[in-house]
Write a protein that binds this DNA or RNA. Sequence first.
DNA 1: TCAAAAGTGTTAGATTTACACCCATGA
DNA 2: TCATGGGTGTAAATCTAACACTTTTGA
Lengths: 224, 224
Amino acid sequence: MTYYNEHSKVWLSVDCIIFGFDEGKLKILIGKRKMDPGRGEWSLYGGFVGSEESVDEAASRTLFELTGLRNLFMRQVGAFGKVDRDPGERVVSIAYYALINVNEYDEALRQAHGQIWVDVNEIPQLYSDHNEMVKKARKMMQQKLAHEPVGFRLLPSLFTLTQLQKLYEAVKGELIDKRNFRKRIKEMDFIEKTELIDKTSSKRGASLYRFNKRMYNEDPNFKL
Amino acid sequence: MTYYNEHSKVWLSVDCIIFGFDEGKLKILIGKRKMDPGRGEWSLYGGFVGSEESVDEAASRTLFELTGLRNLFMRQVGAFGKVDRDPGERVVSIAYYALINVNEYDEALRQAHGQIWVDVNEIPQLYSDHNEMVKKARKMMQQKLAHEPVGFRLLPSLFTLTQLQKLYEAVKGELIDKRNFRKRIKEMDFIEKTELIDKTSSKRGASLYRFNKRMYNEDPNFKL
DNA sequence: TCAAAAGTGTTAGATTTACACCCATGA
DNA sequence: TCATGGGTGTAAATCTAACACTTTTGA
């Protein structure tokens, strides 16, 4: 106690970059701030870290508050700690990104929190350093997706290869050759073809696939 | 003010993983803790974040305190925020790693701080979650080195290709083929051969090379 | 003269990229 | 019947990995 007291404490918050894949586009949730400072500005959803919870737990809790979902795929982006980043008080924020399947996210809940989905390529100016957080989160998420099969977190549990390809295109920000893409997918045993056919997006119908977590089981050679 | 006060503040610290390359080995600095809690345990060097400095500034300052060096290559590893990570009080720590050239680090200063260099493969049990920090820092640093020419930060400004190769081997933890390595280096214009010869490590002598930051200037295709 | 580290090219295999047409179906 | 998205293979080019001997010089 004696030692610590020479130093000053800070408020700690968490801010969430929540990625969703919708209408062929990678989007994140933002909302207008309902509190000062910065009331009315576009902002990430966040919360404060309580004294009885770890920073990771604070992030999970905050994600749950907003989405009603637990066990989301979530990773820490980093600490943002400029002195004046919060115009009111000294607040250091730890940013997290999460991947959600938009179909599992209740629309009413989204609206109740005043959040909207915005295309990652059309993000407006955000409160404080939130644009920086988004930028870093996006880079990390891209990197993650390129080396681990986490993209499935953004899709329904059954998906077509075209959907999967569009997702990868949206994340990488570039077009992918269909044949090459499917060739690589075929080599991944943990992406299973089902007998089901999706007819919503074409007359012919497309096979539905499923991610098999057990088969993946840390298959060490993943690369997309 | 009204809003923030509903929440609780925490102490914020920074902890530094300082990498050096010495005797053909990748090492980090650790020392015995001189304060409670954890007095006498092996630990990373750290410090508290002051109210008038950003978290990054606190890390730079802490690195300067320990090494006497400024403008070190430094990157944030992440926030470590388990509730009980510090047995005394609630302290959240932001870890940073830095790369230093051991020749520029004054031995007396090292000893004055009670720090020693330990091989990254022989790190003892450390205080609190410091082993976790080291593990993550090492992974990030490996990743960084594989995509950006930051290895030079660990070497003298003039170095031989054998030294450079040993460095990469130590970081990657695997042997590299000499001819393939040199082939790749030759393609990098920003690694310049000088007319100077180093005779300390062989009778024949080896050419000394130099990293040319200007030529690098974010050459977008780096890969080692 | 010999031990020790420096230096140097080629080839086979693996991976990556580019590329175009037929299929099934509902409207 | 035709418009729409689904589905399929091959060949060239690039990149990666494996591999062994000669050179220089101080001791």
